[in-house]
Simulated assay, not measured.
Amino acid sequence: MHIDEWLQAIPPLWICALVGVVIGLESLGIPLPGEIVLVSSALLSAKGVVSPVWVGVCASVGAIVGDSIGYAIGRRGGKPLFDRLGRRFPKHFGPHHIAKAEHYFHRYGMWTVFFGRFVALLRILAGPLAGALRMPYWKFLVANVLGGIVWAGGTTAVIYYLGIVAEKWLKGFSWVGLAAAVLFGLSTTWYLRRKASRASSLDEGDLEGVVRSPVDV
């Protein structure tokens, strides 16, 4: 059973709660498919199963609260916390991943928290690593709130309206609409993956064009 089919089997209120919890746990530092749950819930909102407003609100709250808890855990546990996590979960918290994320923090400061929300690896590491590196909390909070709202609310809105448009195409053009929707989805996925790859690349990241000088951690 696909995740969207599974979500349709539970009440709308629980869908919103699930979105907030999964994204919150992912932001806290637990590798969960938060983005997949968010996109699936947003698609369901386009079908009228759940309110897109509540999906966006719950996702934003989960992202902000989860990152804040992750910050507190990272600040308390410090670098030894990541050493232990690296030994247990090398795929997500290996030395290479931590070193790369730490470089972003030293180079871009609070912007790493904001833009990290849009990159899978940094989305998991941003909160705990910001705490471990002793980023001032007010800087973290500003970037965390803005990044959480823009990512969660923006993703929900985009997927919701794309779902509405795609449904109209399918009703009005049958197989032509289906082919157009599939091609559009594939091209969008390719574009987003390309952007994410460039953003996570140390040498080819797009943050250089946004941040002219690094913000000290």
Rank of each mutant, 00 (worst) to 15 (best):
F105Q: 03
V119Y: 00
K91M: 06
G127A: 07
G209K: 13
R194V: 05
H103S: 12
L170F: 05
Y137P: 02
A130M: 07
R134N: 15
Y104A: 02
K171F: 11
W169E: 11
A126H: 00
E208M: 07
G163S: 04
G153H: 03
P214L: 07
S174Q: 14
I124A: 02
G127W: 02
H106S: 04
R134M: 14
V150C: 12
P214H: 08
V165R: 09
S201R: 04
I98T: 07
A196W: 00
G148D: 02
V211W: 13
A180E: 08
F114W: 12
V145W: 11
R117F: 07
P214M: 05
L170I: 11
L122H: 02
G172H: 15
V142C: 11
F115K: 04
A130Y: 01
V158Q: 03
R123N: 06
K168D: 15
F184V: 10
G94S: 09
S174F: 10
G147M: 07
Y108V: 04
G154V: 08
E167G: 09
L141R: 03
R123W: 05
F173R: 10
G94D: 12
A157C: 06
G209D: 12
H103E: 09
M135L: 08
L133E: 08
L125V: 02
R134H: 15
K171A: 15
A143E: 00
I124E: 00
Y104N: 06
E102F: 00
A179G: 14
W169N: 12
T188I: 14
L129A: 08
H96Q: 14
L141D: 06
T155P: 00
L146P: 01
K195S: 13
R198P: 05
W138V: 12
P214D: 08
A126R: 06
L202R: 13
G205A: 09
L162G: 13
V142D: 05
T189H: 13
V145A: 10
V210N: 03
G109F: 01
W175M: 12
V119G: 00
